[in-house]
Amino acid sequence: MTAPRAIWQGIEPVPHQRVYFANHSSNGDFVLLWTALPSPLRRQTRPVAALDYWLTSPLRAFIGREVFNAVLIDRRPDARTQDPVAQMVAALDQGSSLILFPEGQRNSSDAPLLPFKSGLYHLAKARAGVDLVPVWIANLNRVMPKGEVIPVPLICTLTFGSPLHVEPGETKDAFLARATQALLALRAPA
């Protein structure tokens, strides 16, 4: 209904193992990113989602686990029993690609991006060979703002940028700043 349009600007949709990282403005955006992938890629791509959100009701748990085969990580450092980075690395080692929202929560502020969480960096360090692909999702926050029920059918675009890797000796902050810039650079319409 929103006629999503994928623009493969910096990379081709080929079956390499990848971590797609995107801006997070709506609950629908991993579904949108997922549907924008060609179907052979879609089957091997798993979203990374918040356990503390998706396990709060049986319906959400079913959708998250069974429909999208999500890697569920716990955002609460004090409550979690598993290390999120280890879980993501394990999923990569099984051959899956991942969809990750490094902001860690939906962005309903006026800023284009919230500060990235460090998970992206640790993941990139742990599996240096995997392409980190920035994906800018435009308009979905307007289709379905946080807390609304009925979506407005506007056209969304997803712009896929060039892949990133951690440089040898690059610090966490430098890498996260670079990843943020790479994602923001995709905002301008192609």
């Binding site: 006629a3 506007l154 056209i155």
Partner: peptide, 8 residues
């Protein structure tokens, strides 16, 4: 379809 394009 037109409205969707315009309001976008």
């Amino acid at each position: 379809a037109a409205l969707r394009e315009f309001l976008t």
